[in-house]
Design a protein around this nucleic acid. Structure first.
Lengths: 140, 140
DNA sequence: GCCTTTATTGAAAATGATTTTCAATTACAG
DNA sequence: CTGTAATTGAAAATCATTTTCAATAAAGGC
């Protein structure tokens, strides 16, 4: 049970072990699908019926800070828009000034077919963004 | 003025040309940064002060359908969580059943350095996700 | 140009997700 | 066991997005 190791990590950063945290950790640690806070809430409440949604938010935040869970991108969530380029291109964004530059990702095809073979998935689409500092912002 | 071409594309799909749409198109077409709906609203209102936020949402939706604008991922937005893997890994998600599989992206380093050289950016981080159908879901 | 039709609009209300507030509870150090 | 500070859930507040609806205005036919 990896759950214990997650709880130990929480504890080692000064957190107390509570039933609520245990329930959220058990749900996240055992899921192989991305879950929204409400989905976590519904699942975790079967273990601890007194659990509140607010605690789910707070616990997910802690688990993310510890690197035990990660955010998953689902296109409809993203509410920032930029003009599109010609053809399929990817984005490179400056973390400081927000400038966006497009680049092509021709060399990704090899990666996709390798991953497809290794996993048995039929790969349909992808999402790639790079983040960094543009030339101007590097010198400031 | 590429704006006219965007407006022509809107019109060719049966849309009427209005001041509100013109204002939103001008803002989006001329920005090299990703903008949230409220940011678009603030900027476009300087051209058409009667513009409503609802119309911004509706126009962005149309522009996205036409492929004239694209969504930009900013990590804070994403509200679906998954347990993290060991080390830096990337995600492959089944579009049908939601299953998530991790894969390593060792071969991405070459791409990053090429893009860094071409653009002058110092690349700090990246976000890559693949989407497809897992073996089971392909046969259903 | 002038109707007429119908898409489009903005305001307001409704919805939904997330955050804040706060008093009661509870983990755990001593 | 006890004291105390972290944690909790409920309720309220906030914020983003969607829906509703009556008024407006674009564009096609005359």
């Amino acid at each position: 049970m990896n759950t214990e190791s997650w709880l130990a990590q929480l504890q080692s950063t000064g957190c107390r072990l509570t039933g609520a945290r245990r329930a959220v950790v058990e749900v996240m640690e055992s899921s192989d699908r991305a879950l929204t806070p409400v989905e976590v809430f519904d699942a975790a409440r079967q273990r601890d019926p007194r659990l509140g949604l607010v605690t789910v938010y707070r616990t997910l935040e802690k688990l993310e800070q510890l690197g035990l869970i990660q955010r998953v991108h689902q296109s409809r969530d993203c509410q920032a828009f930029l003009k599109a380029g010609i053809g399929h291109q990817h984005l490179l964004l400056c973390e400081r000034c927000g400038r966006a530059v497009l680049f092509d990702g021709d060399d990704l095809e090899a990666l996709f077919s390798r991953v497809g073979e290794q996993t048995g998935f039929a790969i349909k689409s992808h999402w790639l963004q790079l983040y960094g500092l543009c030339r101007e912002c590097q010198t400031k």
